Structures are given as structure tokens and as C-alpha cells.
Amino acid sequence: MSRPAPWRLARETYPKHEVKQTRFQDLDTMGHLNNVAYAALFEDARVRMNQELGRVSRGKMAEGTFRAVVARNEINYLAEGSFPEDVDIGIGIGRIGNRSFEMLSAAFQSGQCIATCDTTIVMTDLKGENLPADFVDRLKKVLVTGG
């Protein structure tokens, strides 16, 4: 695996940001954030982005939206994360396809990118139909910059 492109490591690439508290239980035996903690931090930011996009309401699929699943989730660990410092998760939309879209995110501590996460989300229902046009319009409003 190669290191992510430089634009992926810049905080300003991402249109949305969530500051997350780290927890003592997020540490591994080496004293840094473990891989499960990174996955949970990125997942929480994705869920909140889906809420903003109108797909999720109170942790459940919003009425009138489409069903979709995570088809791919790739985390690149770039540096050690620490406790008790907060993690700033930057997130936005990368590629938009006919029946799928990609959420790109990065975790920052002390201004340094410590990990990136690429998640592909794919529609599972409405076979033969594309992502709804109004939803695609909302995705376009939070595209990442760069690349």
C-alpha cells in the first residue's frame, strides 16, 4: 500500500469536521490508539454525515430514503494517535457513481494527519434505479477538494 496523496493529508480538503474525544479504553498495550478505535471514530463521523445528508434519523434509516450498505472500508494508519487528545475527523464525498458513492475521511491530531479512511457505500434496493437525483445534489455540496 502506498502513502495517500498529499491532498488527502490536508485538513482543508474536507468540507465537514467532527471533533471526537479519545478514551483511555481506546489505547492498546503500546499506549497509542488501537485500530478498532480508529474504525469507531471514522464510523461515527460517517453516520453523522449520513444524518446530515438525510439518510439516517436517530440511528435508523430515514423514511423515504434508500437502503445501502458499506461495500468497502479501507483505513490507512499513518501515525500514532494518543490519549487524551481529541481527534478531528474531516469528511466529505469523493466519487459519486450511479448506485454508489465514496466517503473520504481523515483523522488529525495536533495538526498532523494520523489516518485516512475510504468507504464505498452501495445501494441495495430499488434494483435498476440510480441514486435519487436530490440525494446526488446533496452529495455534490460536500465534495472533497483536491485530487
Rank of each mutant, 00 (worst) to 15 (best):
L27G: 03
T119I: 14
P6Y: 06
I96T: 11
A115P: 12
I91D: 00
D86P: 11
L33I: 01
T29A: 15
G81V: 08
G147C: 04
I121C: 09
W7L: 10
D28H: 10
R46Y: 04
V87L: 00
R8M: 13
T116W: 01
E85L: 13
V19M: 12
E52S: 11
N130L: 07
E74L: 00
K141M: 13
S2F: 12
I89L: 00
T29P: 06
G146M: 02
N76A: 15
A45G: 01
A10N: 03
T145C: 11
F42A: 06
G81R: 00
G111S: 12
Y77E: 06
M61I: 07
G146N: 02
G92V: 02
R72N: 15
P4S: 10
M61W: 08
E129Q: 15
L104Q: 15
I75H: 02
A106R: 07
D44M: 12
S110A: 14
D28L: 06
E18S: 09
S57F: 10
Q25L: 08
R95P: 08
G54L: 09
S100I: 09
V36M: 12
A106F: 04
S110P: 06
G128P: 04
G81H: 01
T13V: 04
P6G: 09
K141Q: 14
K16T: 06
S110M: 11
K60M: 13
R55C: 10
G94T: 11
A45F: 01
R48W: 05
L131F: 09
G128T: 07
F135Y: 13
V47L: 12
K60N: 13
I75D: 04
G128A: 05
Y77S: 06
N76G: 13
E80N: 05
L9F: 05
S100H: 05
T116M: 02
A106C: 09
F24I: 15
I96F: 10
G147T: 06
R72G: 14
K16G: 02
A5L: 15
N130S: 12
T145Y: 14
N34E: 07
I114E: 02
D137A: 14
D86N: 14
P4R: 05
R55I: 07
Q112M: 13
D44C: 11
M30V: 07
D26M: 05
V136C: 03
T119V: 14
A107Y: 00
R48D: 05
R95Y: 07
E52N: 14
D125P: 05
S57R: 15
N35G: 08
R67N: 10
A10E: 10
